[in-house]
Every structure is written in C-alpha cells, then in structure tokens.
Design a protein around this nucleic acid. Structure first.
Length: 305
DNA sequence: TTCCCGCCAA
DNA sequence: TTGGCAGGAA
C-alpha cells in the first residue's frame, strides 16, 4: 500500500491526518454492504448511489436487492414503465430520483452499450447524476482516483483537517480540493481512502455523538487538538416536513402507488383536506411527470394506462 | 437558494 | 419535536 506522505513528522492542520491509518481501519471495519461486494457492476453502484441520496442505508438495502434481481442491467430498467419503477421505488422518498434513474438507464442502454460510464464528465451528463454521484460511481465501481465529497466526508474534513466543529458554509470547491490533497497517487488506494472517509463519517465521526474513543485518526485530528470546539457557523436551516407540499405530494402519490390503476378525484381529495394546497401539489406532480391524467379525467402513475 | 420524501433516534 | 440523512436541479 502506498503512503502519500514523505515524512514521519506529526501532521499539521494543513497536511491533514495520516490516511494510512484510516485505510487500515477501513479494511478491518468496513460494513459488508451488498453494493460493495466483489463483482458488483457499475449499474449496481449507480442504483445504490442514487437510492442513497438523502436516504439512510437501512432503508435502501431491501429495495436495492429487489431492483438488482428485477433489473440487473440498465436496459432492463429502461424497458419497464415509469409506473412500475415508481411502485418499486416504494417509500424511499424523492421519487423524482426514480424517474431520472429510469431516464439515465435508457441513455446508458442506447448510447453507452448498456454499460455505466466510468468517466466523471460522461456520468455528469446523465440525468440525476451530479457532482457527488458521478465521482462516487467512478471511484467505487471503477476504482478511479477522484475526490468524493458527501455530507459525511465534508464533516470529517471540517473536523480532522480544519479543526471545526462541523462543516459550515458549504464550499464544494474547497471540499474537493481538501480531499484531493488527501488522496494518495495510487488509484486503487485512493479509491479505498474515499470509501474509508465516508465510512468513518457515517459510523464514527457522526454529527451528533462522534466516537472519538474508537476513531483511527484521533491522534491526527485537528478538532481534537483544538479541544473539540462546538459548531460555530451560521445556524443551519431546519428542513420542515409536516404540513409542507412535500408531505402532501407524498400523500397523493401514495394513493396512486396503492391503487391498481387510475383513481378518481375523490380518492385523491381524501388524502389532504386543504383544497388549495392539494390542488397546487396535484398540478406540480403532473408537471413533474410523476402523475398523469387519463382521458376520462382520472389520475394515474405515468405510463400506466 | 429553495424545493423535493420519509423515517427514526435523541 | 427536532436533526440528520451516500444530493440534484431549477
């Protein structure tokens, strides 16, 4: 294993922690997540990364397994209807992700020979794939050396490198540069470190109660040296859910997922009693393509009638 | 910047 | 009751 360091001297806040310790820890403590199993295709990794956007691992596990059995290749998903895909998405949340993945599958099947691209820029051109997911797929599926920065890595870097209580103003460019500076030259080792940073942030260096007593880089952590200061940035915005359009949209879509086919207006009206908000959300679902209206005025999942 | 879902631990 | 989640797009 290559060490990206050339000195044995203690790390400073500028150079960051000793990443070899972290990689060693990861090799012994990584969870056996199914999409990490040897032989997982780029498609399997892309599906997992898309499902994991803003959604905890435990909720993704069973759905990912179902999808891999049902749609083992991009062309398999592309051949399914939008309604089938939305039903199979279940209650993972943010169902627009499912439609974008369906669309991306079609593009991969028709333009990339049914193989998920390994190049970051090519991945970025696909719907639903942004900075994080493109880099995650290139790194975790194909072993490329590319900084992968999610909310966990951002927090680890803020603490271990900068000595801050938590990530403050999101600065994607700085985060990418910080992680880039940590990555060793060797591609495979760099990919492993990227996974290790995420694993550390999710299982040890957590937002609420960091497990510094079991942290492999605690001796190298700028946050420790600074006395573990509390978060000092601007107040984080609380993302409300109860009573929002997001909840109403979820309720309306849930009616359609549970129904065999098209439903009438009365069935949707029962899902929310404030008519103005309900109608607004109904319109937005139609605009987003998450719902369609039949010729006789009923409502259905897209591509179902 | 704001909007998109839904679940659970604290 | 709230914070936090393997983010992306307009």
């Amino acid at each position: 294993m290559a060490d990206n360091r050339t000195t044995e001297a203690p790390r400073s806040a500028e150079t960051g922690p000793d990443t070899t310790e972290l990689i060693d820890w990861f090799e012994h403590n990584a969870r056996a997540l199914p999409w990490r199993a040897p032989g997982t295709t780029g498609w399997g990794v892309l599906v997992s990364e898309t499902m994991l956007q803003q959604t905890p691992v435990s909720r993704v596990l069973p759905i990912w397994q179902e999808w891999m059995e049902r749609w083992p290749r991009p062309s398999d998903l592309a051949a399914a209807s939008q309604a089938e895909v939305l039903r199979a998405w279940g209650k993972l949340g943010y169902p627009r992700r499912a439609l974008r993945l369906h669309e991306a599958a079609g593009a991969i099947a028709s333009e990339h020979d049914d193989v998920v691209p390994a190049d970051v820029d090519t991945l970025l051109a696909l719907p639903g794939i942004g900075t994080y997911t493109a880099r995650a797929v290139a790194t975790f599926a194909y072993g490329r050396r590319a900084p992968v920065v999610d909310t966990n890595v951002r927090r680890v870097v803020a603490r271990a490198v900068h000595g801050a209580g938590d990530a403050g103003n999101p600065s994607p460019k700085r985060d990418l540069a910080d992680v880039e500076a940590l990555l060793p030259d060797d591609e495979a080792t760099a990919a492993k470190l990227s996974a290790a940073l995420m694993e550390l942030g999710q299982t040890v260096c957590t937002a609420r109660s960091p497990g510094c007593e079991v942290c492999p880089i605690v001796g190298d952590c700028a946050w420790q040296r600074a006395g573990r200061p509390a978060y000092a940035g601007p107040p984080k915005k609380v993302q409300r859910f109860a009573g929002t359009d997001r909840q109403v949209r979820g309720r309306l879509l849930d009616v359609l997922r549970a129904a065999e086919g098209p439903v009438n207006r009365q069935q949707l009206d029962a899902a929310w009693n404030e008519a103005g908000q309900r109608d607004r959300c109904l319109d937005s679902l139609l605009v987003d393509g998450l719902m369609e209206q039949t010729d006789d005025g009923r409502f259905a999942l897209p591509g179902e009638h």
